[in-house]
Amino acid sequence: MPVTWSDDVDAIIGGDLTCGLACLTPAGGAVVTSVSPFGIRDRELGTVGFTTSLGFGRKLEHIRDDPRVALAFHAREHGVGDRPDPRFVLVQGEARFDPHPDRATLDEIGTVSEPFMGAPKTGRFWGRWLHAYYEDRVLVTVTVTRVLSWPSSNAEGEPEVFGAPRPEAAAAPQSPPKKGTGPRVDAARIGERAARLPHLLLAYRDADRYPVVAPARVIDADADGVRLRVPAWVPPGGRRAGLLAHSYRAQLVGLESRQNSGWLEVTGTEAHYAPHTEFGFRAPANKTILLLANGFLARRGLAKARKEGRAAALG
């Protein structure tokens, strides 16, 4: 039977402008990035969706290689509907997508995005410039395995569970990477940047091999790593983990995102994070400039994906 969820949870899934997407990596870790769900869901079928572009990032490749994903609905800013509910909602399931959506799907994406993003730019110039951004959109549909809902944004305590029960045993610690567990990039700078952004998410692989996303908070950072405050249910020990710090304004204008992969050591509600890779960007605070930048990045990203054969490999 399809997994369904409560009206309160549905209002959050249907109203948040952005959510955190966690995908699994071949090495047994997880990466987390922000995506736009635009309220796409079907409670009768037990599905939740989001959109992305063939020209942005490698999330579709992660999904192709392992469809198990998690979506963390963690921020109420700039969404639609009544927004005071502070709860943290985590959706876990298996994702699928068509890398070559038909015209009807693209039109549907445009329709559902308007309440969140405003009407799309039209005209000869914008049609050509934003072709890769608008026309190469992909709809990702997640068949839900479980939904977890905590009453507060810090996800403390026991969640309400819809669908499959949570794993009974905590995820076992992982073997350290061959290159060591220490930082490979500037941990102090990464911690300082993450501390000034309002949203911080941590992702790892759970005992049932689904990714989990937890809210986190920076305590301090130095050359040895970033100290974090995490919920008590994050499993103890060491493991590969992803970190996302981000902020955004209405219609995603002024979006800033700082993404890392690295090694996590957890003791109680404190964790030590050693970043191994970093990726980040800051979008312009002006919507016209933002669209110009989106068009350029999408065109460049799509051209690179095609040149490297990654776009063709998706199907």
Results as ranks from 00 to 15, higher is better:
residue 223 A to D: 15
residue 223 A to Q: 14
residue 225 G to T: 04
residue 225 G to P: 06
residue 226 V to I: 15
residue 228 L to Q: 07
residue 230 V to G: 08
residue 230 V to D: 02
residue 231 P to Q: 09
residue 231 P to A: 10
residue 232 A to E: 15
residue 232 A to P: 04
residue 233 W to A: 13
residue 233 W to S: 13
residue 234 V to T: 13
residue 234 V to I: 12
residue 235 P to L: 10
residue 235 P to I: 11
residue 236 P to M: 06
residue 237 G to C: 05
residue 237 G to L: 06
residue 237 G to S: 07
residue 237 G to V: 02
residue 238 G to A: 10
residue 238 G to L: 11
residue 238 G to P: 07
residue 239 R to H: 12
residue 242 G to R: 12
residue 242 G to C: 12
residue 242 G to F: 11
residue 242 G to Y: 11
residue 242 G to A: 12
residue 243 L to M: 14
residue 244 L to V: 05
residue 244 L to P: 00
residue 245 A to P: 00
residue 245 A to V: 03
residue 246 H to C: 13
residue 247 S to N: 11
residue 247 S to H: 10
residue 248 Y to Q: 03
residue 248 Y to G: 03
residue 248 Y to I: 06
residue 249 R to Y: 03
residue 253 V to T: 15
residue 253 V to D: 13
residue 253 V to N: 08
residue 256 E to Y: 00
residue 256 E to G: 03
residue 257 S to V: 13
residue 257 S to D: 04
residue 257 S to L: 09
residue 258 R to C: 04
residue 258 R to M: 02
residue 259 Q to K: 07
residue 260 N to H: 15
residue 261 S to K: 02
residue 262 G to P: 00
residue 262 G to W: 01
residue 263 W to G: 03
residue 263 W to T: 05
residue 265 E to Q: 14
residue 266 V to C: 02
residue 266 V to S: 01
residue 267 T to R: 14
residue 267 T to D: 15
residue 268 G to R: 04
residue 268 G to H: 01
residue 268 G to W: 00
residue 269 T to A: 10
residue 269 T to K: 07
residue 270 E to W: 01
residue 270 E to C: 02
residue 270 E to N: 06
residue 271 A to S: 05
residue 271 A to V: 01
residue 271 A to Q: 04
residue 271 A to M: 07
residue 271 A to I: 02
residue 273 Y to K: 08
residue 274 A to W: 02
residue 275 P to Q: 06
residue 275 P to A: 04
residue 275 P to M: 06
residue 275 P to V: 05
residue 276 H to Q: 14
residue 276 H to G: 15
residue 277 T to I: 08
residue 278 E to R: 11
residue 279 F to I: 00
residue 279 F to K: 02
residue 279 F to M: 09
residue 280 G to F: 10
residue 281 F to W: 13
residue 282 R to C: 03
residue 282 R to N: 05
residue 282 R to A: 15
residue 283 A to S: 12
residue 284 P to V: 03
residue 284 P to T: 02
residue 284 P to K: 06
residue 285 A to D: 10
residue 285 A to L: 00
residue 285 A to R: 11
residue 286 N to K: 09
residue 287 K to F: 06
residue 287 K to E: 15
residue 288 T to I: 11
residue 288 T to D: 15
residue 288 T to M: 06
residue 289 I to P: 00
residue 290 L to C: 01
residue 290 L to F: 08
residue 290 L to K: 10
residue 292 L to K: 08
residue 293 A to M: 08
residue 293 A to W: 14
residue 294 N to L: 15
residue 294 N to E: 13
residue 294 N to R: 07
residue 294 N to P: 00
residue 295 G to W: 04
residue 295 G to I: 08
residue 295 G to A: 08
residue 295 G to S: 06
residue 296 F to P: 00
residue 296 F to C: 11
residue 297 L to C: 03
residue 298 A to Q: 07
residue 298 A to S: 15
